[in-house]
Write a protein that binds this DNA or RNA. Sequence first.
DNA 1: CACTGTTTTAAACATTCGTTTATTGGTGAC
DNA 2: GTCACCAATAAACGAATGTTTAAAACAGTG
Lengths: 222, 222
Amino acid sequence: MAQTDTVTRILDTAEVLFAERGFAETSLRTITSKAKVNLAAVNYHFGSKKSLIQAVFARYLDPFTERFHAALDALEQDYQGQTIPLEVLLETMARSVLEVPAERNSLKVFMKLLGLAYSQAQGHLRRYIQEHYGSVFTRFTDLVRQATPELPDAERFWRLHFVLGTVIFTLSGLDALRDIAEKDFDEHVSVRDLVRRLRPVVVAALQAPLPEGAPESIKAAG
Amino acid sequence: MAQTDTVTRILDTAEVLFAERGFAETSLRTITSKAKVNLAAVNYHFGSKKSLIQAVFARYLDPFTERFHAALDALEQDYQGQTIPLEVLLETMARSVLEVPAERNSLKVFMKLLGLAYSQAQGHLRRYIQEHYGSVFTRFTDLVRQATPELPDAERFWRLHFVLGTVIFTLSGLDALRDIAEKDFDEHVSVRDLVRRLRPVVVAALQAPLPEGAPESIKAAG
DNA sequence: CACTGTTTTAAACATTCGTTTATTGGTGAC
DNA sequence: GTCACCAATAAACGAATGTTTAAAACAGTG
């Protein structure tokens, strides 16, 4: 079982360093020396640095999508055709996100990685995530549509990305923000506490009144 | 005036490349070759790559802070001691942000850079921005505090960053999101239109009901 | 033990990076 | 004209990167 040991030790070390510094700023030599494995082990087991990055994400996202799909299955069975309330959908997603890294104590790392996926993923990573995990997101947005029939499709689309921005931006920049917050308020902020603060804000954002005036482009007047 | 020409050409090229790829992924050779200047010109005029990055930010943030301070001055004079409504404060900030890059047509670049400042700034950039532009942000948050006396300080701090995340995330990823939106809704979305959609969402987020339960860390129980 | 396939290791490889140096070009002052 | 000063250039430097190679160590099987 020397192989598994080496592989997991590389992944454990890489995910922490990636989360701390980003991808380009983390060299394979830093990873392998800290993980106490040989430099060539990365290319031997993963093929390339790109593949290592994808493997780091897969180790989080695979169990997440599995859990999330299962949770949505259970939800749809509970509500048997009735529309699932928005709060329940959001709560379910939050719970699925929180459960995965709870098994290992690395919720912060997971959040930072999600942030990096958006801000640092030029090509391969964004494509990889879209291909492998796009379907679960589509399923979720379909359920949100049923839960918010009063919203025009375009409005809901933008608002979902508004709150996505809030969550990713906040949690991925958590360390820096936490430093400021602790200095200003002498209050340590856990990720769980942040999620508690996020809940009413996200709901209010999605349920805000529709904007005044009309969109600039008028498709059909009648 | 050959100096100014070289300097601005470096800055113009660097800001676009930084916004597209990030800092570590953009080499000085890529910048100088695309800008059609000599490689050594960067170190000659700016000293180092770090200083170039800071100069790119300064070229946006200096005029912004000047404008924003002036706008807040005018606002405080108008309201003469009365508290300025939240919507007015937000509107003023939005206008200041939009005006700066309007002079050059690069709002997208500006937003992308702001996103990078949070996600990629390890040390020097975050420190630089905090030192040089922290005061205007403090002034703004003080006014927001007066406009939202019902919010606990910590709650307001986090919510301001929540909406900051929304704005930066949305506008910095505008191109990709716009492509999806146009494909799905056959509707072109201008930045002005996006701001119109953002307004009620941001206000609703800041004025959302307080979260249930208490923070994990209880400082003083009474 | 001998053989086979897999994993680990040290060393080298070819690039690429930011930075520095030394030289040349140009411009205004006196 | 020449001197001084700033800018631009080509070339090189040393360090760091991802990747590959070839040999060694190991494990299990017959």
